[in-house]
Design a protein around this nucleic acid. Structure first.
Lengths: 345, 345
DNA sequence: TGAAATAATGTAACCGGTTACAGTAACCGG
DNA sequence: CCGGTTACTGTAACCGGTTACATTATTTCA
């Protein structure tokens, strides 16, 4: 026997009590059609008396809008995501939408639908490789609003993208090491395979090397994966086994840089005296590392804001930018060898 | 003219194509009643062919369950929340639920409903003071599943709570400063007003002082608010104006500790030679600060997991713990004055 | 003054699922 | 061989809102 959970008071209850039709109540609530003063007041009172709250789900079904957007991430534990979400929240909030956050747990069965998508949101923010090209194309074919973050659109799914400038900044940071700190044997920690940020940073690295006549050497590339632990493990392993000389390392991102600093310290190498280190992102903590980390500042919160804004443009059928590339900028601290006066808060 | 967005394929389309009733399709999807092999296969194929995805909202309306839980935070920018969310995600995910994350933007109009609540979730995880006692009591009266995180339940709303041990750990860390590092003039940075963690840490501080015959001095208390910037500002101000002597500071939490370290460095004070510093939380970054931070490890990810689990117990009408108090433990690093061999990753 | 526009409201058909209830066919024990 | 299960399927009434369309009362204006 199914016990009807009658607890909830519905729009019909209100209508009955206020002696009007449900349509009128609905109109009053949504203020999308005129309702007479008298009736309005009566409905108002009844609603208060019954403590009526419209059932969001029912409304969603009827309107086909959820007033919710989804954010799909790879995982949640990187500090990197905090400012991203903050940025997104700002605009989601201002639009009086909700934010559904989901991560693709390691691999995730391909046959099962993403935890967030057409069925429960009005639009999706997709970070890097949290969705495959195929999945993105499908969404495009269904005409579903999506904005890509830290990746560009696949050929057949020209969704707006928001990302940061990687190549020039990386190149510049490498050239800084070469020109100002006289480094020439620069280790490069690669980011996750197929990730665009990782790709362009590598291109920037190679470009800088080439520009200074330094031959690229695959042995100078380690896997860092933008993960503290992975970077630590790679570099430790590298240090333990007979390895080519090096005098600097570009860590890929700040998280990996922490792993790098740890491994170097453990091996008794001094930063920046023996080895220069540079990161990428400028996480909140980087000024406080030891030594303070020279890194590339990525405007992550801004990325979140911009992406969310584009998504709303899409949802509201307004014009969108096909690509927003936010500028990055090098922050010189101590780890590269520069003199450094601490950032005051 | 409202254009019906006919794009979506419904269960009726599937039923028609597969030449069965919608009920059968529904049963097949939910596997809650037997369906013959033949029919099952046919439905399966049609679903694949049509690329059918059940409409979550419709399902929610019919079942009165959203398969979504909400997390209400104060803000998003504290690194502290990353592990918390990770923990929650783990179990939400395993239950095949979604997670709706919302923050109460500065103050937020009291009359307007929380962005997340009875209308769009099956249960709520409420962090610290993100909801007022009154709001919590209302939820209780409506019989809505809620688990409180880092706070205890109000008198009339005995919801389960999950939090960490604050007082004993704080006391112990203060006593460590006194006994092992011979500090007696210990500054205390207070957390946010009315926050329970803040309260108990203060009690722990006072208890330790009392136990060692050190009189409590209100002038030795600064506002830190668990915020890097606030702590920095408070301490800087304190240092600039003639201030009582001190030889240690309990920062309240790790975020504030960063502000403390910054202010001290700026003032030319050495840590730990001149001043000992201890934090609270053991954020991922603390081992990498300079100097590595002595702090209290709070099992934040575990808190998230436990809270989510309790919430599901509540939702499923299973027994719950009225209170889960997770143990904390001091991690001695360098900032208090201890010798320290770096945590290897 | 009469026709047309406007305001205020009601009726009922949706939205896209779930499920109580009913019915039929095959199966089972005595 | 028959009453009672059990397996499978269909019909139609929900869930709680929104809204197209119809209706009536009230203005507005030529």
């Amino acid at each position: 026997m199914m016990t009807r959970r009658s607890s909830s008071v519905t729009i019909r209850d209100v209508a009955r009590q206020a002696d009007v039709s449900v349509a009128t109540v609905s109109r009053f609530i949504n203020r999308n059609a005129p309702v007479s003063q008298t009736v309005a007041r009566r409905i108002q009172e009844v609603m208060a008396a019954l403590n009526y709250v419209p059932h969001a789900t029912a409304r969603h079904l009827a309107t086909r809008r959820t007033r919710t957007i989804g954010l799909l991430l790879i995982n949640m534990h990187r500090d990197f995501f905090a400012p991203l979400i903050t940025g997104i929240e700002t605009v989601v909030d201002q639009r009086e939408y909700s934010l559904l956050v989901a991560t693709i747990r390691g691999g995730q069965r391909k046959n099962q639908p993403a935890p967030v998508g057409t069925h429960n949101t009005d639009g999706l923010l997709v970070f890097a490789d949290s969705l495959s090209d195929d999945q993105i194309i499908q969404l495009y074919q269904r005409n579903f609003p999506v904005v890509l973050i830290h990746r560009t659109a696949p050929q057949n799914a020209p969704f707006p993208c928001v990302t940061v400038e990687n190549k020039a900044a990386t190149r510049k940071s490498i050239e800084h090491l070469i020109e100002h700190h006289n480094r020439r044997r620069i280790l490069f920690m690669r980011g996750p395979l197929h990730q665009e940020d990782a790709h362009w940073r590598e291109v920037g690295y190679k470009t800088a090397l080439a520009a200074h006549g330094i031959p690229f050497d695959e042995n100078m590339v380690l896997q860092g994966d933008f993960e503290r632990e992975v970077a630590y493990a790679s570099l430790s392993h590298f240090l333990r086994n007979g390895h080519p000389q090096f005098d600097a390392v570009f860590a890929g991102d700040d998280d990996a840089a922490i792993g790098v600093l740890t491994a170097l310290k453990e091996a008794g190498l001094r930063v920046p005296e023996d080895i220069s280190v540079v990161g990428f992102d400028d996480l909140r903590l980087t000024p406080f590392l030891s030594p303070p980390l020279t890194t590339v500042r990525a405007p992550t919160e801004e990325v979140g804001r911009a992406a969310a804004e584009q998504l709303f443009h899409l949802i509201e059928h307004r014009d969108t930018e096909s690509m927003i590339l936010l500028p990055t900028e090098i922050v010189y601290r101590r780890s590269c060898g520069c003199d450094y006066s601490p950032d005051l808060l």
